[in-house]
C-alpha cells in the first residue's frame, strides 16, 4: 500500500466506483448545506402555505415567488426542501449508528479475541444468537418499547448491528494476533492496552472499513424502513423513510411525487454507499489483489 493518494488512484481505476464516490460526496455536501440550499425551511410552519398542498412538480407557489420544482406534500411543504433535510437526518442517523456499533463491536471483538478460551466462546455464542435473529425485528421491538426519537433509533440500530462488527473484528484480530510483529511487541514487554490500541487495532482497520461502509448503507436502509413503519423517527424530524410513508396514501390517487422522489434519493444514497463498499472490498482484500 502506497499511502492514501496511491489508494485513491487505484480506487478511481473503476469508473463506476469513482462515480459512486462522487455521488456520495455530492449527497453528503448537499445534506450538510441543506439550510442554505433548500428553497424553504420545511419545518418552519410559518413558511408553509396549506393552500399549496399536493401541487405537482414545477408548480408556482400561490402567495410567494417560490417554484416547487419537485412538488409539495400534504402540508404544502416544498418536496425538494423536505428531501434535503430528510437526507441530512438519514445520513446523521446512519453515521451515528455505525460509529456506535463500530465502537462497541471493536471493544467486544478485540477483548474476545485477546481473552480467548471460555470468554471468547461465550461472547461469540451471544453474537451468533443475535445474528440468527433478523436485525429488523430486534430494532422494531426495541423501538416499540423505547418509543420514537433520533437517540433511540441510533441505540436500536447499534443494538441490532454490533454483532456484525464484533465478529468481523474478532476474525481479523485472531489472524493478526498470531503474526510475528505481535509476538515481537509482546517480547518487548509492552502493556496489554498498548499492544491492543497501537499495534493490533491499526492492522485490523482495513477489513473493518469495508464492513463499516456496508453497514452505513444497511443502517440508513433500516432506519428508513423503521420510520416508514412508523416506529422510527417522530413526525417532527422526518427522514427520507418518513417522507415516503407520508406519500403512501396519495400514491393511489396518482400523486406520485411525494413518495417517488424521496425514494429515488434514498436509492441513490444507498446504491452509492454499496458501490463504494464493493470497490473497497476488492481493493483492501489481499486475496483479491490483481483480479
Amino acid at each position: 500500500m502506497k499511502g492514501a493518494a496511491g489508494l485513491l488512484a487505484r480506487y478511481a481505476e473503476d469508473r463506476v466506483a469513482a462515480a459512486a464516490l462522487a455521488l456520495f460526496a455530492l449527497l453528503a455536501l448537499a445534506a450538510l448545506a441543506a439550510p442554505w440550499l433548500a428553497p424553504q425551511n420545511p419545518y418552519d410552519l410559518a413558511q408553509l402555505d396549506i393552500l399549496d398542498a399536493r401541487l405537482p412538480p414545477g408548480s408556482a407557489a400561490g402567495a410567494t415567488e417560490l417554484v416547487y420544482r419537485l412538488g409539495t406534500d400534504a402540508q404544502g411543504r416544498d418536496m425538494l426542501s423536505a428531501m434535503l433535510y430528510g437526507l441530512r437526518i438519514s445520513l446523521a442517523v446512519g453515521f451515528a449508528a455505525t460509529a456506535g456499533g463500530l465502537a462497541l463491536g471493536l471493544l467486544v471483538g478485540l477483548s474476545s479475541a485477546l481473552a480467548g478460551g471460555r470468554v471468547d466462546a461465550l461472547i461469540m455464542r451471544a453474537a451468533d444468537l443475535q445474528l440468527a435473529f433478523p436485525a429488523i425485528l430486534l430494532a422494531l421491538i426495541l423501538l416499540a418499547a423505547l418509543g420514537p426519537g433520533p437517540g433511540k433509533i441510533v441505540a436500536a440500530l447499534v443494538a441490532a448491528q454490533w454483532a456484525y462488527y464484533a465478529r468481523a473484528v474478532r476474525g481479523v484480530a485472531l489472524v493478526e494476533r498470531e503474526k510475528d510483529y505481535i509476538a515481537a511487541v509482546r517480547l518487548l514487554g509492552l502493556s496489554g492496552p498498548r499492544i491492543l490500541f497501537r499495534h493490533l487495532l491499526p492492522n485490523c482497520l482495513p477489513a473493518l472499513i469495508v464492513v463499516a461502509t456496508l453497514q452505513v448503507g444497511a443502517a440508513i436502509a433500516l432506519e428508513a424502513t423503521l420510520s416508514f413503519l412508523g416506529v422510527g423517527l417522530p413526525v417532527t424530524e422526518p427522514s427520507l423513510g418518513l417522507l415516503i410513508a407520508n406519500g403512501f396514501q396519495y400514491l393511489l390517487s396518482g400523486k406520485y411525487w411525494i413518495s417517488v422522489f424521496p425514494g429515488l434519493l434514498l436509492l441513490g444514497l444507498i446504491l452509492a454507499i454499496n458501490l463504494v463498499a464493493e470497490r473497497l472490498r476488492v481493493l483492501l482484500n489481499p486475496r483479491l489483489q490483481g483480479v
Partner: peptide
C-alpha cells in the same frame, strides 16, 4: 445484484403498487 441490495424494499413495494395496480 448490487442494485437489488440497495433498493429499499418498502419503496419498491410502493412502486409496484403504483405501476401494476394504479
Amino acid at each position: 445484484s448490487v442494485l437489488g441490495f440497495s433498493l429499499p424494499t418498502f419503496w419498491v413495494g410502493l412502486m409496484f403498487i403504483m405501476l401494476f395496480a394504479v
